[in-house]
Nucleic acid binder design. Sequence first.
DNA 1: TAGGCGTGGGG
DNA 2: TCCCCAAGCCT
Length: 349
Amino acid sequence: MDSFISSLHQWYRINKRDLPWRNTQDPYQIWISEIILQQTRIAQGTNYYLRFIHTFPTIVHLAEANEDEVLKLWQGLGYYSRARNLHSTAKTIVHSHGAKFPTNYTDLLKLKGIGPYTAAAIASMAFDLPYPAVDGNIYRVLSRYFGIATPIDSSGGKKQFQQLAEELIINKPPGMHNQALMEFGALQCVPKSPDCSLCPVADTCFAKLNQLIEQLPVKSKKTKQSKRYFYYYLIDDGTHIYINKRTSNDIWKNLHELPLLESPHEISDEEIIQKKVPYINGTNFNIKLVSSPKKHILSHQVIHSKLIYIEVNTDVDISKPLIRVNKKDISKFAVPRLVEQFFETFNLV
DNA sequence: TAGGCGTGGGG
DNA sequence: TCCCCAAGCCT
């Protein structure tokens, strides 16, 4: 077991990537990087990290920002509750902890958006505390090497891997150890078709010896996707369009979008044209076109959507909740990718 | 506790 | 095209 770990540490010294958040022990920067990298690839998250640190160099800068500003910076990354919790926690630390990051695992865990993995990552990398950061990489590496077939998304499985990881980190440099195991999972012990001929521990790996690489780790749950039908209205008076803020507990909370008609089923173009246009009072408008369908896929939903392009005069009668925006300012608002792609199609951004 | 919560890349 | 996945957390 000790040679397993020392082999991975040795592998890490040779193969580690030079990532921007690896040259710091600043808990703020480590925290930002860990939140961005939750369920997110390094290739996708790195530029967001650099922009985030540049825009908000310290936790005080972040705490003083508006949530809209934070969401705009987060636009395109997904899982937007991460951004909302990040901002909320920055305010908590600044206003209730004297702008000092908690320095122990238990207090880190109390913060919004920081769970067992992230608390361990910050505790180990910023404060040299021996908490194992058990993420998807670690589940994969340990399940394969030790031949553990307990589902990683069961409570029993989590407990089992957690306990094993706690034993493995004893008397190791915590931050380096955690990053070594994660990096090994990310680069060498990859989910699909790992090149075991390059693996330093292949000769003692249970999954390799028993040809179970593709079977491990075991996951029990499969998320089912539901279908939704979104019809967006681009109401254009020549200079302005209208947008709306999503505030309910649903996807894309607190992001902006175009006026939306959601239907439980698909609506034909003929029907759309005959329907009352939501938010517009009266009949003083012209439906110019209904776009081709666009399918937007989330982890748990498939959204079938179309855009209805509507020309109006500047004296159009619009109901209250909508925000009237000059077209040249539209990029100031955080919107989901689906809406941004409609904006691109219609040359608004 | 099981399901909700995004996006983009790769096989 | 489809499916799985990527440094999880919240409720």
